[in-house]
C-alpha cells in the first residue's frame, strides 16, 4: 500500500508552473528521500500533500485520502516538520507540548519525556529563544510522541550542524524502533539523507525524474573507464543510458546508468576491441550530480 500517491499532480503560481504532472508513490514503511535542487518543486509538493496548497491539476492522496480532504482524523496520524514552519514562539517548550498534547489521542507522555531528555531541550525556555537547531528539534518533538503513521520533513537539516543533525536522526530512529511508519523527507543535499533513506526520488523543474530503492539505484550506476587498444572505437551511437561520455586520447570515460555486467562485456568485446575496462561503483551523490548534469547538457551521443 502506498502512503503517498500523486497522479499527474500540477501546481501553478500565476503563469509559472511549479509542478508538471508529478507522479509519485511512497510505499508504507519506507523512508523516502525526496531530492532536488533549490526551486525544483519539493516544498510545493509537500505543501500540496499537506493541503497547505491546493493543486492546480491532478490528484494527491495521503493515507488513502485526497489531500484536499485531509481532516483531523488523518492529521492525528501525520507529523510535519518544516524549516519554514512558524511555531508559536511565545510559548515555552513545555507549554508547546501542553498545547499540542490534547489534539492527539495516541500521545505517549513517556515517549515525550524520553525525547525531551534525548534532545536536551530546556523545557522552560521560550521557543523564540531557541537556536535554529533547537527549534527544529522542538518542532520534531511535537510531531513524534503520538507515533505518526507518516512523518513529513521538509528540509529538516538545512543549516543544522552535524551534531544536531545526528540527534535529530536518532530521535526519529527512537520512534522507528517502536512503531512502523513512513518518513517522507525532502532535501537538496543527498548527503543529508543518504544514510537514512531506503528509497529515493529526484525532482527537477517540477517533474519527477525517477523514484526507486537506493539499492537498485546504486546497483545500476557505474563509472566506467575504457583504455582503448589499437582498434578505433565506434562512439557515434552509444547505448541508451550512457552519460557524460568523453574521450581523452586513448581513454573513454562514461557513466552507465543501466549497468549490467553481461551487457557491458558483450558491448566492449564488440565495439572496444583489445581494450581494458575499469568499472567502479558510484556514490549516491555522484549519481545525482551526473543525473543533474545530464538534464542540462545535450545528448552524450555528441561526445567525441
Amino acid at each position: 500500500m502506498n502512503v503517498i500517491e500523486t497522479n499527474n499532480l500540477s501546481r501553478r503560481y500565476g503563469r509559472a508552473d511549479a509542478l508538471h504532472g508529478l507522479n509519485l508513490s511512497v510505499p508504507a514503511g519506507s523512508i523516502f528521500a525526496f531530492i532536488g535542487p533549490n526551486g525544483a518543486g519539493k516544498t510545493t509538493t509537500i505543501k500540496v500533500l499537506m493541503n497547505l496548497l491546493e493543486p492546480s491539476g491532478g490528484e494527491a492522496r495521503v493515507l488513502g485520502v485526497d489531500s484536499r480532504r485531509l481532516g483531523p482524523r488523518e492529521r492525528e496520524k501525520i507529523g510535519y516538520v518544516s524549516e519554514n514552519q512558524k511555531l508559536p514562539d511565545w510559548m515555552t517548550v513545555r507549554q508547546l507540548l501542553d498545547y499540542c498534547r490534547p489534539f492527539y489521542p495516541t500521545w505517549d507522555r513517556g515517549l515525550e519525556a524520553k525525547l525531551l531528555k534525548q534532545f536536551e531541550l530546556p523545557p522552560d525556555r521560550k521557543v523564540r529563544q531557541l537556536s535554529r537547531g533547537m527549534m527544529m528539534k522542538a518542532a520534531l518533538l511535537t510531531s513524534l510522541p503520538y507515533r505518526p503513521k507518516l512523518l513529513v520533513l521538509d528540509e529538516p537539516f538545512s543549516g543544522l550542524d552535524p551534531l544536531v543533525r545526528d540527534e535529530f536522526v536518532r530521535g526519529m530512529l527512537e520512534v522507528s524502533q517502536q512503531s512502523e511508519w513512513t518518513i517522507f523527507i525532502s532535501s537538496h543535499d543527498i548527503n543529508e539523507v543518504e544514510q537514512l533513506a531506503d528509497r529515493v526520488g529526484l525532482i527537477d523543474g517540477g517533474r519527477m525524474q525517477f523514484a526507486e530503492p537506493i539499492e537498485d539505484l546504486m546497483g545500476r550506476f557505474r563509472r566506467i573507464e575504457v583504455i582503448l587498444g589499437n582498434a578505433e572505437p565506434e562512439l557515434l551511437s552509444p547505448p541508451e543510458g550512457w552519460l557524460e561520455l568523453e574521450r581523452m586520447g586513448s581513454q573513454v570515460r562514461f557513466v552507465d546508468s543501466r549497468f549490467s555486467p553481461d551487457a557491458f562485456e558483450s558491448y566492449r568485446s564488440e565495439r572496444f576491441r583489445d581494450s581494458e575496462a575499469i568499472v567502479s561503483p558510484m556514490k549516491l551523490r555522484e549519481i545525482f550530480v551526473t543525473l543533474a548534469k545530464s538534464k542540462r547538457e545535450p545528448s552524450p551521443s555528441g561526445a567525441s
Binding site: L52, L53, G71, P72, R75, Q85, P88, W90
Partner: peptide
Amino acid sequence: DDDPVTEGDAFWMTRPIT
C-alpha cells in the same frame, strides 16, 4: 496573530485543527 489564516504553513494548519 498566533494562528494566521492566510495561505502558508501556519502551525495550526498542520495539526488536527479544522
